[in-house]
């Protein structure tokens, strides 16, 4: 049945909008609206006349389950930007990767600790519970720092330890090294040569793998100790 010139077109539009056109009759009407442009135009005209907007007062909060189920059933994860394309990820990655690179280079170019490396203990770092302590020894030429833990401690797969220098001057923590283990030997950066002065503090925080993404400690400080000598 073609509706375009049907004498009941207006009546059907009205019934459709008000909701009394039901079941098979409604489906036939909807099909006609898709295939008969002039009839569809008439329905739009009706809609432009009778389209009351509901008031905010009728609103009701759905339970979170509805959205969770929709997300799952429509598999919306397919239409989210993958994690490796998001800007925030790359910004974080860049910082972490740089820190990791510095760490690797430090390990590569480090003079291998040997019998000849003469060091002097400058600090003892401990935690609040006293379960572990770490000694920090500086080489006599002031270029290499050696950490010894009272027992072996390795960072988990998703974390790193980071050693910080907190100068007396109160400029805030300066990153010294990203560590996978609390037993470590590494060359100090040129900027830090001569900075490990008595009165300053060395501290170790836990950070995401690769080190703090911000350049300042973001995780818990697990060890700290003043430089004494």
């Amino acid at each position: 049945m073609r509706l375009e010139n049907h004498r009941l077109l207006d009546a059907l539009c009205g019934e459709y909008i008000i909701g009394t056109l039901r079941g098979g009759a409604r489906r036939r009407f909807e099909r006609a609206m898709r295939s008969e442009p002039r009839a569809a135009l008439r329905l739009r005209y009706w809609e432009s006349i009778v389209s009351p907007r509901y008031s905010k007062m009728i609103e009701a909060q759905p339970s979170p389950r509805v959205w969770q189920r929709l997300q799952r059933e429509l598999d919306l994860a397919r239409y989210r930007m993958p994690w490796h394309r998001r800007a925030a990820f790359w910004q974080g990655w860049a910082v972490a990767a740089t820190a990791a690179l510095v760490f690797t280079l430090a390990m590569l170019f480090l003079p291998r600790p040997s019998e000849t490396l003469q060091t002097v203990q400058i600090a003892r770092l401990s935690g609040t519970d006293g379960a572990i302590s770490v000694t920090a020894d500086l080489s006599r030429d002031g270029r290499t720092l050696v950490l010894h833990a009272s027992r072996p401690v390795l960072a988990g797969p998703k974390q790193s330890y980071e050693l910080w220098l907190i100068p007396v001057a109160g400029t805030g923590p300066v990153p010294v090294a990203v560590l996978g283990s609390l037993d470590a030997t590494f060359a100090l950066a040129t900027a830090q040569l001569g900075q490990l002065r008595p009165g300053s503090t060395l501290a170790v925080s836990t950070e995401p793998a690769g080190g703090s993404p911000t350049g300042k400690p973001t995780g818990a400080v697990i060890l700290a100790g003043k430089i004494t000598g």
Binding site: K56, E59, A60, V66, W67, A77, R78, Y79, R80, M81
Partner: peptide, 21 residues
């Protein structure tokens, strides 16, 4: 890649009214 986020916003904005209806 922006569709899921847009759809989620659409839901959050309109679901209370539509639930009322």
């Amino acid at each position: 890649e922006g569709s899921a986020v847009a759809f989620e916003r659409l839901y959050k904005m309109s679901a209370p009214l539509l639930l009322g209806v």
